[in-house]
């Protein structure tokens, strides 16, 4: 059963999806196969009554955990999704990897991988699953957040956003990032996965070794947490008690990493 708050979150996200679809001819959505962007995908199916009327982008850094790729291909088939895969082959050919610096690697393989794909396909709107409770700069985001010609985020001059009227007009060459999950917390995500029985990748569950992933990224920069949670119910129980930050297993968040990354267009 869904509680009234989850229903409100769903209603708001669905409204945002429909506004995005109405206003942007060339729209796409990022899917990393993690819990957030999978909930996002589910909400798209809610908004459009079982259909997903725009392509899903996956920025493949080549360092993803193999199970994530299997999961991606399976549901792309089952849910009849249009999948577009982007990869910064040039940077990979030159040997980019996390040992050359985490921020540098994220910028090259993720940020620039995404920017290149946006430029190539001419997307005007990109839907992403970022949440305000993940870290400080995301707490200051808008539902519809403009990026300039270089894909950069001008956080000083964010558009006003009131009464569900969003920034949907913009100059040629710029694009808008759309964030339907902004008001959701980590626990809301899991409660919704439970309420809707969304098939989620099993890396989030402990399989007897006493560890599980709480946040999924590239294999070298994401570490599992100590946990014996084997089911969605157990994860929700665990989250109710924890005071450890969700992204504590994500290396890129150290120091001022995220502000610098996000200013330059990181998700």
């Amino acid at each position: 059963m869904m509680n009234s708050h989850l229903r409100q979150l769903e209603d708001q996200s669905v409204y945002i999806f429909r506004e995005a679809y109405k206003h942007f001819d060339n729209l796409a959505m990022l899917w990393s196969m993690g819990k957030d962007s999978t909930v996002l995908l589910w909400l798209a199916r809610k908004a459009f009554f079982g259909h997903v009327p725009f392509p899903l982008l996956h920025i493949d850094t080549s360092y993803k955990i193999p199970a994530m790729i299997e999961y991606r291909d399976r549901f792309a088939r089952e849910w009849r999704l249009e999948l577009v895969i982007g990869q910064n082959k040039e940077a990979l050919a030159k040997g980019m990897n996390p040992t050359l610096g985490r921020v540098e690697c994220c910028t090259a393989l993720k940020t620039n991988g995404l920017k290149n794909l946006i430029a190539e396909k001419g997307y005007q709107g990109i839907i992403l699953g970022v949440r305000a409770d993940e870290e400080g700069t995301r707490a200051k985001e808008r539902y519809f957040s403009p990026r300039d010609k270089h894909g950069d985020w001008d956080f000083r001059e964010q558009p006003p956003e009131l009464w569900d009227q969003f920034k949907t007009t913009f100059p040629e060459g710029t694009h808008i990032r759309i964030h339907p999950l902004l008001d959701w917390t980590e626990i809301n995500i899991w409660e919704y996965i439970r309420a809707e029985s969304i098939p989620i990748i099993d890396l989030y569950f402990d399989k007897g070794e006493g560890t599980r992933y709480r946040s999924l990224g590239c294999a070298p920069c994401t570490t599992p947490i100590k946990s014996t949670a084997r089911t969605v119910d157990e994860i929700i129980e665990e989250l109710r008690k924890t005071t450890v930050a969700e992204r504590s297993g994500r290396a890129q968040d150290e120091g001022r990493g995220m502000e610098l990354l996000r200013k330059d267009g990181y998700m």
Binding site: A132, T137, A139, K140, F155, R156, Q158, L182, E259
Partner: peptide
């Protein structure tokens, strides 16, 4: 704690709104 932008901390002012989540007495 919540002025996340470097510029906000340097100038000691809040530039943009932050959404923060807080639970107390079973109310979120």
């Amino acid at each position: 704690l919540f002025d996340a932008f470097l510029e906000e901390q340097e100038q000691g002012i809040t530039i943009d709104t932050a959404r923060t989540f807080f639970t107390w007495q079973d109310r979120h």
